[in-house]
């Protein structure tokens, strides 16, 4: 729904890479080679990537370039991965809503 279909001179025609198998919190989501984790999650309507330690507040992507550290998700068991900088890979298991390691 959120992947752009319309084209214009500002948004010229584009073909994504092949579809990949990616799960988020155990459930399969639509994902294509070349997309970042953030784009995949947002395209699926999932904005709450983690919850904060002190206040338990939801956080999602903010800066889009890896300097704010809000978009932290767990990828294949590794915590605190920045979703905006990390491309999805085939078979990737993403978990949201967590904060840190062991």
């Amino acid at each position: 729904m959120y992947r752009i279909k319309a084209t214009s001179d500002l948004l010229p025609e584009l073909t994504r890479g092949p579809a990949l198998t990616v799960t988020v919190n155990g459930a399969a989501v639509e994902a294509y080679d070349g997309e970042t984790i953030a784009a995949v999650l947002l395209a699926a309507g999932l904005w709450q990537l983690r919850r904060t330690r002190r206040r338990g507040e939801p956080r999602g992507p903010y800066c889009g370039m890896g300097v704010c550290f809000e978009c932290l998700v767990t990828v294949d068991g590794t915590a605190a991965v920045r979703a905006c900088l990390t491309p999805v890979t085939d078979g990737m298991r993403i978990e949201t809503g967590q904060e840190t390691a062991p």
Binding site: R3, L42, A43, W47, Q48, P58, G60, Y62, G64, M65
Partner: peptide, 24 residues
């Protein structure tokens, strides 16, 4: 400003232009 859904211009442009996603 910390709510999910508050984004910077830079983040929005990356999503729109490079990722071709408009989750809004």
């Amino acid at each position: 400003w910390t709510l999910p859904g508050v984004l910077t211009c830079g983040a929005a442009l990356q999503l729109l232009k490079s990722q071709r996603v408009a989750p809004f």
